[in-house]
């Protein structure tokens, strides 16, 4: 099969959507951040000039505009660029977008997708490093996809654009150059179906987005020490494939959660709670969370590394649950 970078797979997905569905319009252009591959988005925009809208620096205004447009039958895909900018749009996301279908008793649908680049990208400091997926998860009324490979981003995007729900789409800038197999044929990945990114028998790791790749690297090293790690990537956290997580824990009896949200009330905290509640009997040792510490993200490289989930911390946590 051919290989594409994550960025190429994403833009190919967007291209196919624009070509196959007139209702899809794109707002914003920083899907690939300021990385070198951002030119791919520029090329796509040049091919479809009437389907791209370049909003002012007005996140609340343009995200809300997308919500309104979605109610008319448009299917907007909105880019918020750096996830931290989402907070400017927060009132429209949490108060309006997420509530509309429910408040209207299902009369009104909001079929939109909004994209953001989350996480510690290196030097982003406190105001450009957020992973707001836990905050979004705490807001019922939207689906949330957090891909970790070129194959997944394209396949999940196809589903996101076809459902009648608002979808939050979080990418990590550090994934964009990653290469992986992507079929030529059209495909979509259903929401709520986890992918076992690595099979193993001693410890289960549950992770999303960049943390899947970091966990895979750690698992490779642990394998050479005779420790067998299974990696469950839920791919979407709303809906969540709980069964896949619980099955894996039933098999290994040990859980390490790797997540870039802050420790308290993070995505990792929720994974841990689900397992504690529903698979406690299978656990041979306490659950471990490898997560971002409860501090704003510092700028200085050694401090940044100190607070983020690193490969070394994953390896250590896996060894601790085995001891």
């Amino acid at each position: 099969m051919r290989t594409l970078t994550y960025g190429q797979a994403m833009v190919e997905g967007l291209r196919e959507l624009l070509e196959s569905d007139d209702r899809i319009h794109i707002m914003g252009q920083y899907f690939l951040g300021l990385t070198p591959q951002r030119a791919l988005v520029g090329e796509l925009a040049a091919e479809h000039p009437d389907r791209f809208y370049y909003p002012p620096i007005a996140e609340l205004g343009y995200l809300g505009t997308a919500i309104g447009a979605a109610m008319t039958g448009m299917r907007p895909i909105v880019d918020l660029a750096t996830a931290s900018f989402m907070f400017q749009a927060w009132a429209q996301i949490t108060e309006e977008m997420a509530n509309i279908h429910y408040m209207s008793d299902g009369q009104t649908k909001v079929p939109m997708v909004f994209h953001f680049n989350h996480g510690i990208r290196g030097g982003g400091a406190a105001q450009h490093s957020h992973s707001p997926q836990a905050m979004l998860w705490n807001t019922p009324g939207m689906e949330i996809m957090l891909p970790s490979t070129p194959y997944d981003v394209k396949g999940l995007l196809k589903t996101a654009a076809s459902t009648d729900n608002p979808t939050a789409w979080g990418d990590h800038v550090k994934l964009f150059m990653m290469e992986g197999e992507v079929p030529e044929e059209d495909y979509a990945i259903p929401f709520g179906v986890a992918d076992i990114k690595r099979e193993g028998s001693d410890v289960t790791i549950v992770a999303t987005s960049l943390m899947v790749q970091r966990s895979l690297a750690a698992a490779g090293k642990l394998a050479s020490e005779g420790i067998s790690v299974e990696i469950v990537d839920p791919r979407t956290i709303v809906p969540l494939d709980e069964a896949a997580i619980l099955e894996s824990v039933a098999k290994t009896g040990r859980l390490v959660v790797v997540d870039e949200c802050h420790r308290s009330c993070g995505v990792g905290a929720e994974f841990s709670a689900i397992v504690a509640e529903k698979a406690f009997g299978y656990l041979k040792s306490p659950i471990r969370r490898v997560v971002t510490e409860d501090v704003p993200i510092p700028f200085s490289p050694p401090m940044e590394e100190y607070v983020e989930p690193t490969e070394a911390k994953i390896i250590q946590a896996v060894k601790e649950v085995i001891d």
């Binding site: 030097g123 406190a126 105001q127 450009h128 510092p298 700028f299 200085s300 490289p301 401090m303």
Partner: peptide
């Protein structure tokens, strides 16, 4: 020093150029 994330920066490396 702050822009390089060093401890002699005004914010001890916490903020960097943006802050």
């Amino acid at each position: 020093a702050e822009i390089l994330g060093k401890e002699t920066g005004m914010m001890g490396g916490r903020g960097g150029t943006l802050h």
